[in-house]
Design a protein around this nucleic acid. Sequence first.
DNA 1: AATTTTTGTTTGCACATACAAATATCATTC
DNA 2: GAATGATATTTGTATGTGCAAACAAAAATT
Lengths: 155, 155
Amino acid sequence: MDNVTTSTITEVKTSKSRYSACLLFSANALSRAITAIGDEEFGRFGLCYSHAYMLCEVVEQPGITPSELSGTLCLTPSTITRLVEKLEQKRLVRRESEGKKTLIYPTAEGEAIQPEIAQAWDRVGARYSQVLGETSVCQLTKQVFSAAKALGGGI
Amino acid sequence: MDNVTTSTITEVKTSKSRYSACLLFSANALSRAITAIGDEEFGRFGLCYSHAYMLCEVVEQPGITPSELSGTLCLTPSTITRLVEKLEQKRLVRRESEGKKTLIYPTAEGEAIQPEIAQAWDRVGARYSQVLGETSVCQLTKQVFSAAKALGGGI
DNA sequence: AATTTTTGTTTGCACATACAAATATCATTC
DNA sequence: GAATGATATTTGTATGTGCAAACAAAAATT
């Protein structure tokens, strides 16, 4: 029960499958690394990156619905509900029921901190670029974006 | 349902801050999309992708330690402990204490299902390639990998 | 007009993951 | 050789996320 297994494994290591393993692993590692930077910058507002992103969308489109946000942020409706709850709890947005829909509006405070959040985005971008180089960031973003869109299909 | 969702990202936007937002968002979206495919394939074994990846490493290097796995999988030691617990619970690996170290070995069953798992990796890879194209997968993997390494620095 | 189907949102539960603190062992220094 | 510091691992706690089910409201079908 030794040699057979061993040779199989060695084959596996050099075959295509390692690439797939690597993409899965790398994509998650990249996600964690980038999220860490984002959360570090947005932590000052007591937000994580997805809260910040969501708040920007709400400020940009007052009255946006959870399902629209779900499409924009590529997160499931249930996750959106949870994020909105957090933001509501921090008095940055408020909800209004209208029929079966829910409309989400920024509060005055939510609009007020939006410029600061935009600055935080810039700092995040600067940190990426510092490490990866500005051109790489653009290239990487495009590739990752199109791959995500192709694979995820949008929720 | 109308075109209220103007800011839905169908295209990488041009302002700098949008790029950073986009990279953060895209990286996470890619991660989720890819993880979904991985988990779907490994779900037959009752595993998620990281369990499967870890099992491969353990089979390949019997007696590997949590900290080594932490480096390989780019996950924190505490996460490794939790994953090992799950794998141990499924009787696929076992732990041995040796001083302050913990050595992780595959069980017979763990070794037995390894070839099936390798096949699952191949199926995952096939699904990526089908959507993205084989050359794109390799290119994307390399880029994402080096970016993750540069940003994360390895844990 | 009443019932069924579809659509939008929210809850219950589960999981992977991380951080911080606790624990256990090894290595160094006095 | 005892005390201090360094390293390895595990627990407590918290969080973002998703799936499936529940719920609510609108639309469609009868």
